[in-house]
Write a protein that binds this DNA or RNA. Structure first.
Lengths: 211, 211
DNA sequence: TCCTGTGAAATACTTCACAGCT
DNA sequence: AGCTGTGAAGTATTTCACAGGA
C-alpha cells in the first residue's frame, strides 16, 4: 500500500460527518451508494477511498455506521482531544473562539493570543487573551500542536513564524496571504474571498446561458 | 480551446492577490518564476493556467503587473462590484458582515437576514437585519446574485433552498452540512473543521518520524 | 440478490522541454 | 540571455466493471 493521496484525506472528514448524522438518525447500516447520495460523491469513490485504510464493509450489506465512524475517527486522529491556540481575537478570532463546532469534533480552544497590547488581559470566550511573549511557555505547558491564525494580513507571516518557532506543527490560517512554512509544518488556508472570486468567474458567463 | 479546469479558476484569485501586492510594492514586471516563488507554485503551472485565457506575457521579460492584474480581474468578473447578502447574523455572520476584506475585492454586503425573530430589526455592521420574508423582494431590488450562509447547521438547507428559490445563483456556505443545490447554482463550502481534521491525520503519524 | 474491494481503463492535472520572440 | 506559450510526457485521481462474499 503506497502513499495516501491528500484528496482522499480531505474527504474522510466529510464521510465522518455524514456518518455522525446517520447515527443520530438511528441508521445502523449504510451502503456506499447511500452515503454517496448524501454527499454527492460517487459510490466508487467512497469505496476506493476507504480501501486505502482497510476493509470496513460487508458485501451485500454495506458499512456499519458506528463501526465505520469509529474507524474514521481513529484514522483521522480524532479519538483524542486536540488543544488548539487561536492568535488574533478580533471579530473573526472571537467568533472562532466561541464557535461551538470544534468541541464535538475533537478540538478545544485552550489559549488565545493577540499582538495588540489593548487586547491583552481581556476575556474572549472564557479565555484571558495572552501576549505573544507567553506563546512559547503556554504552547509547551498545554501541549499545543495546532493553531489558528486570525490576525490582519500584515502580521500573519510574523505570527506564523512565531508559532513555528514554538514547535506548533499545524496551522489554520484565516489571513488572506500566501504564507510560508518550513518543511514538516502543515498549513491550510481558509479564504472566503478566493471562493467568492472563483464563483464570480462562473456567474459572469452564466448571463444568458445557464446549464 | 476546451473547457477550463476548475482548479485553474481556483488559482486565479491567488495570482490576482499576489499581483496586487506586487503593484503596491512598485514592481512593474514579474516573471512566472518570480510570481511562482511568492506563491509556492511552479512557473510552468502559472504559464499554463494563464494560457487558457490568452497570451499576456512578453518573451524575455515576463508579465506587466498591472496589465495582468487587470486581465485577471476582468476574467474573474471583478471589474464590477457584486452585491452580496449574508444570512445569519450570529457571531460568525457578524464577523463576515464587518469583514474589511470583501470591499477591496469586488464585493459589498448590501443586506443581512436572520431566521431568529429576536435579531430582526437589530443593526449588524451598518445594516438592519431583515426577516426572511423580505428576502425575495430585497434580492430582486438590489440585484443580489451571491449570498453567504452563516446559520446553524439545522437551518442551513432550508435557508439555501430559500435563496435558490429567490434566484440567487451562487452561495458560500459556512454551515458544516453537505448542502444540495440544483443544477446551475454554485455552492462552495468554508469548513475549518474539515481542514483541522485533515491536519490531525498527518500530525498523528508525525510522532517520531517527521520528514 | 445486493454490495464490497479492487485491478484496469479513462480522465484530469502537472511538469517537462523547447521553439520562438524580445 | 531570458522568458513565454504550448504540445507532449508524466502523474494523479476518478470511474468502470466485475469477481466474489453475505
Amino acid at each position: 500500500m503506497s502513499e495516501i493521496p491528500e484528496v482522499v484525506v480531505l474527504r474522510l472528514p466529510l464521510y465522518a460527518r455524514a456518518l455522525e448524522l446517520l447515527r443520530q438518525e438511528g441508521v445502523e447500516v449504510i451502503s456506499s451508494q447511500g452515503l454517496g447520495a448524501r454527499l454527492q460523491v460517487t459510490p466508487a469513490q467512497i469505496r476506493k477511498d476507504l480501501s486505502y485504510f482497510g476493509r470496513f464493509g460487508k458485501q451485500g450489506r454495506g458499512y456499519n455506521v458506528s463501526g465505520l465512524l469509529g474507524e474514521l475517527r481513529q484514522i483521522l486522529g480524532l479519538d483524542r482531544e486536540w488543544p488548539i491556540a487561536v492568535v488574533g481575537v478580533g471579530r473573526l478570532g472571537g467568533a472562532i473562539i466561541s464557535y461551538p463546532g470544534f468541541g464535538p469534533h475533537g478540538f478545544r480552544v485552550v489559549a488565545a493570543f493577540d499582538t495588540d497590547p489593548f487586547q491583552i488581559g481581556e476575556r474572549a470566550g472564557g479565555l484571558v487573551v495572552q501576549s505573544m511573549d507567553e506563546l512559547k511557555s503556554t504552547v509547551h505547558e498545554k501541549g499545543i500542536e495546532l493553531a489558528v491564525v486570525a490576525v490582519p494580513p500584515s502580521q500573519a507571516q510574523a505570527v506564523i513564524d512565531a508559532l513555528v518557532d514554538c514547535g506548533v506543527k499545524a496551522i489554520l490560517n484565516y489571513a488572506p496571504v500566501a504564507a510560508r512554512v518550513p518543511q514538516g509544518v502543515l498549513l491550510r488556508e481558509v479564504d472566503p474571498v478566493v471562493s467568492l472570486q472563483s464563483m464570480t468567474f462562473h456567474l459572469k458567463s452564466m448571463r444568458g446561458g445557464p446549464s
